[in-house]
C-alpha cells in the first residue's frame, strides 16, 4: 500500500510537471484516497524482498535492451538468408502470476526473443527467437540470467 501511494504521487507530480506545494498536497490526498478506493481490486502478490537486487535487475535489463536493440538492428539490415528463426519451449519454475508476467516481459524486451504463450499448468513458456544459434544455450541463458535473479529478488 505505501509503495502504491508513493508511485501515484510521483506520477501526479510528473503529469503536472511541477514541485509546487499545492500540487504536492493535492497529489498526497489523491495518493492516500485512491489506494483505499481500489483496495477491493487488490489481489495478494509476493513482495519484493531485496530492493538492492531489484535495482540491479532493472539496470541489467536496461543494459540488455540497448544491446538487444543494436543486435536486432544489425540483423534487420543484414542479409535475410542468414537469419535462423526458431521457436522453443522454455521450462520455468516460477508459477506465480506477477513473477511470470515480469519474466515474460523481460524476455520480450531483450535479445531477439518474444514470449508467445504459456502453458495452462505454467510450466513451459513458448518463445520465438529471431536468430537462434544454439537452442540449449538460449534456454540456459534465460534461466540463469533472468529467472534465477528474479527468484532471488522475490526471495523464493
Amino acid at each position: 500500500m505505501p509503495l502504491h501511494s508513493i508511485f501515484l504521487l510521483l506520477v501526479w507530480l510528473g503529469l503536472n510537471n511541477t514541485l509546487a506545494p499545492g500540487h504536492i498536497v493535492l497529489g498526497g490526498i489523491l495518493a492516500f484516497l485512491i489506494p483505499l478506493v481500489v483496495a477491493g481490486l487488490h489481489t495478494p502478490q509476493p513482495r519484493v524482498q531485496r530492493y538492492g537486487l531489484a535495482c540491479r535487475y532493472v539496470l541489467m535489463v536496461m543494459y540488455d535492451i540497448v544491446v538487444a536493440n543494436i543486435e536486432v538492428a544489425i540483423r534487420i539490415l543484414g542479409p535475410m538468408k542468414n537469419l535462423k528463426p526458431g521457436f522453443v519451449a522454455v521450462p520455468i519454475e516460477t508459477h506465480n502470476e506477477l513473477m511470470l508476467t515480469i519474466l515474460a516481459s523481460t524476455i520480450s524486451l531483450t535479445p531477439g526473443t518474444v514470449s508467445a504463450e504459456v502453458t495452462k499448468d505454467r510450466k513451459w513458456l513458448y518463445v520465438h527467437v529471431l536468430h537462434m544459434e544454439d537452442e540449449e544455450a538460449l534456454i540456459q541463458q534465460i534461466k540463469e540470467r533472468y529467472e534465477r535473479k528474479l527468484r532471488e529478488v522475490f526471495g523464493c
Binding site: 528463426p85 521457436f87 522453443v88
Partner: peptide
C-alpha cells in the same frame, strides 16, 4: 504473438521448432 498463434499463421521456411506451434496453441506442455 498469441493472436498469430491462434490464427494459425505459418512460419517462414527454415524455422526450427515449427512443430511446437500446435502444442502452444492448445497451451499444453511440449
Amino acid at each position: 504473438a498469441k493472436t498469430a498463434l491462434h490464427y494459425d499463421i505459418g512460419f517462414v521456411r527454415g524455422t526450427r521448432g515449427k512443430e511446437l506451434a500446435s502444442k502452444a496453441r492448445e497451451r499444453v506442455s511440449p
